[in-house]
Simulated scan of single mutants.
Amino acid sequence: MNQTNSSDKLMKEIFIECRPETLFSFFTDPDKLVRWMGRHVLLEPSIGGKYRIDVNGSDIAMGEYKEIVPNEKIVMTWGWEKSKLVPPGSSTIEFKLTPKDNGTLLMLTHYDLTESEVSSHQQGWTHYMARLQSLAQGQDPGVDPWSVQAMH
């Protein structure tokens, strides 16, 4: 069906009972981001600013911020430090925050993934968005089990 070099995208949507500005801070404040993803997080949340998320000591996500619309949208490039398949900058993630009822609809779109990488990233975002949801709603998701074991 697809050629090997074609790129796919994955989309996920989740409703979170908190205001967009509360949710937004979980993408731009390293102390908050590290509570739902990674063990060590470095962020420069400005256009062209870099980020580095050390998930478990060996898997390290890196990229840069491309677009930041306060409380509405964040676009960043994404990749893994040592990966040949998804090197840093090779794919793009967009997070859109839309106010809805008494909370925020979070829409994630991950572009430019190779077909073979879609399912592992789908699993990853399912895991992390559930953690983000409970955190932003005031619960404690606890230590990320993935932060203590290598994924690959």
Results as ranks from 00 to 15, higher is better:
Q137N: 06
E72A: 03
A61G: 06
G124T: 04
V41T: 15
H110M: 10
M37P: 05
L10A: 07
L113Y: 02
W80S: 13
C18P: 11
S90Y: 07
D140V: 12
H121K: 02
G142A: 06
G57T: 05
S116D: 11
K96C: 11
P30R: 08
T126V: 07
E117S: 09
I60T: 14
K84N: 10
V118Y: 00
S147N: 06
W125Y: 04
I93N: 06
V86L: 15
P88V: 10
L97G: 03
K66P: 03
R39A: 08
Q139K: 06
P87K: 02
T4M: 12
G63S: 00
L97V: 05
L23V: 14
P30V: 05
Q3M: 15
V148G: 04
A150D: 14
K100H: 11
I16N: 08
Y51A: 11
G142Q: 11
I60L: 08
R52L: 07
E67L: 10
H121W: 05
A136D: 11
Y51T: 06
P30G: 07
E13H: 06
K50L: 14
G38N: 06
N56V: 05
E64G: 07
I16F: 02
L97Y: 00
V118I: 03
G103T: 00
S6D: 00
E67W: 09
F27Q: 13
S120W: 01
L97D: 04
K50T: 07
